[in-house]
């Protein structure tokens, strides 16, 4: 149960942080690449329990 709570907490914090950073990001050339990296980070945090299961 505590692991699930931590997982949900992590996703919550990461998504909130990512949405704030995306707004504050300067609209430069690199913006779209940074957003792509952010999507990868969220993907990793969602799949974290899977990694624990396999290991």
């Amino acid at each position: 149960m505590s692991y699930v709570t931590e997982w949900v907490k992590n996703i919550f914090i990461i998504v909130v942080a990512v949405s704030f950073i995306e707004v504050l990001l300067p609209a430069g050339n690199m913006a779209k690449y940074v957003k792509y990296i952010f999507s990868l980070i969220i993907l990793a945090s969602i799949l974290a329990p899977l990694a624990k299961l396999v290991a």
Partner: peptide, 15 residues
């Protein structure tokens, strides 16, 4: 429900 809420933060659908 928490995921639905956090999803409404951005225009993109994350979760």
């Amino acid at each position: 429900t928490i995921f639905f809420m956090v999803n409404s933060m951005t225009e993109k659908d994350y979760v």
